[in-house]
Structures are given as C-alpha cells and as structure tokens.
Amino acid sequence: MGNILIVAEIQKGKIREATLEMAAIAQKLAGPLGKEVKSVVLGKDIGAAAEELSKKGGGEVFAADHELLANYNVDAFTQATRTAIEAAGADLILVSNTPSGWDFAPRLAAGLDAGFVSDCFNIEEEGGKPVFVRRVFNGKLDARLLPQTDVVVATVQPGATAAFEGATDGKVTNLDAGIDAAAVRAKFIETKVAESKGVDLTKADIIVSGGRGVGAPEKFTETIQPLADALGGAMGASRPVVDAGWLPHEYQVGSSGQVVTPKLYIACGISGAIQHLVGMKASNFIVAINKDGDAPIFEVADVGVVGDLFEVVPALTKAISEAKGG
C-alpha cells in the first residue's frame, strides 16, 4: 500500500490555497486508507514554501529545487513529479486542477499507466478504497468513480473544500528532481498579464449577465443591456457568448474572465458551467432566470425563475424603470 503525494503549487512565492485544500483532503483520507501524506514542491528557491507546507498538513515535503522548474514547464514538471512519486512511495497522487495541473497530470498518469480522474470536488473513502466524485456534462450531473488499479492520479477542483487548518510537524527533504534537460522540449517564453479592461466588472454593484440562452448578439443590446442600465449596473456574459464573438472578452465572467462579487448578480440564460460559477458564486445576491429548471445555476442562486428570459427581463426592466421613476 503506497502513500499519498500532494503536488504543491506555488503562487507568488507562497503555497497556493488550492494546495492546502488538497492537504485537508489528504489528511482526512490518510487514516482510513492506511496511507501517509507526503508532498512535493516544484520550483526555484522554494525552501520557505516547502517549510510552510510541512507545517500545514503537507507531511514530509520533498523540495525539488531546479532552474527548469522556475516557470511551469510540462516536460520538467512531469519528470520531477515522477521522481517525487518514487521518493514518496506514492500510489495516490493529488494535483490541483489549475492551468498547470490539468496540463501535466494526465500526461503523468499515462506515463505511469495509472488511473486518472480530473476536477474532483470530493474524494471519499469506501471499504479502504478512494472514491472520486466529480461533475460531468458541464455540471448537469455528478459522477462517482472507482479505481480499477492501484496507482491513481487525481486532480482536485480548487475551492471545493476548505483549506487544512491546524499545525503539523512535517519535515522538508531536498530532492534531486532528476530532470533530463535534453528531454525538456517545451520552452517557456513569458507570461502575459491580462490586458487592461475596458469594462471593469469587479467594481460594479450590480451585474446583469447573459449566456448562450440569449441566443444572438443583438439580443444583448435589446434585452440584457437595458436591464443593466435601468438598475444602474453593468452587463456581463458567460464564456459561450464570448467564444461565439457576440461580446468581447472584457465582458466575460468566470475563471478565465473576471471574478466578480457584486451586491446583485442577475444571470439570464446562463446554465451555470463550473467555470462561470467560480467567477460569480460569491456575489451577495444572485437571481437566475433560465428556461431549464434543472440548470446548475439554480444551485448557487438565491432566487430563481424558470421561464422565458425574453418575457421576464423586459417586464422587469419596465418595472425597475417605473419604480425608480416613481
């Protein structure tokens, strides 16, 4: 029976919150699965981060300090993680489902001929085995998966669990990452920060967003924008709208767009794919209007209306204007 290995992620020199969330999951599973928790920190000049993780549920932390790990690199990260798996004697490897994690974790699993499961929001124990729980069909259904093999690589959804709280006595072990520079083919050039936004939704008190259900670009000007205007708020959109070229990227709310927390968020014709929910679920009050009563958006909404947005939204716009006028 092998151990659990958490693959830590560094953000601005510190251990990312998502890593501490995995520490909470790993510490909870360790006893029932009869495993020890170990971690690996990949990067350059990471001693302090490794120390931090060892005290926050990371167990024995392997610090793999290497020039080629200074920036995310698929080949270098895959190689170094394999070295850490050997060192940790791990058969359950946890990686955050972040842009780096989703990039190399499946590759790692294929190289190990291991089971792979992505974006788990929970990992449970049943009969001494891990059970992985995740969303499918863009959030419309949940699935439980059982490994048919001993070695499993799983990516964990950031924000799905609370971070590990408490203090642990871990230790830090330096690890030679064993990177073969000749086998590192991908070349990191630079990170480009988000372009300055013409529309800064993060400062809006009220946001009225439209999704695929709005149906056409002109419907945003005819239906969504007037409600935003009547409320004195801003207009937003979900990813499919931006992908279709109906609105520019600066309107996009979600993990790859803007993360917003207005006092009021009105979601019109948005089904609620996880990448959108991540960007708006912390809003103070959420109204969802959608024709599909099973849409996941209703799970995060405070009030919901199952109906035709082209009836409800214009009527609401009129009523708001009247209320403000009177």
């Binding site: 001929d113 291991a114 089971g115 949940d142 439980r144 919901g304 199952v306 009527a315």
Partner: peptide, 26 residues
C-alpha cells in the same frame, strides 16, 4: 482503469427560492 460507479443529478443543496406565477407576479 477508472470505472464510473454511477452518475446522478447533483443533490439539491439549499438551492434557490423558486419564484412562480405569471410574468407580472414574478
């Protein structure tokens, strides 16, 4: 190597308070 044990509609959490009625009432 990974087997789906089951898929199911996500358990309804607190969820939204659903507003019903005519458009005017809503």
């Amino acid at each position: 190597k990974m087997k789906i044990e089951k898929v199911y509609t996500p358990p309804k959490g607190d969820g939204a308070e659903m507003i019903e009625g005519s458009t005017d009432e809503v």
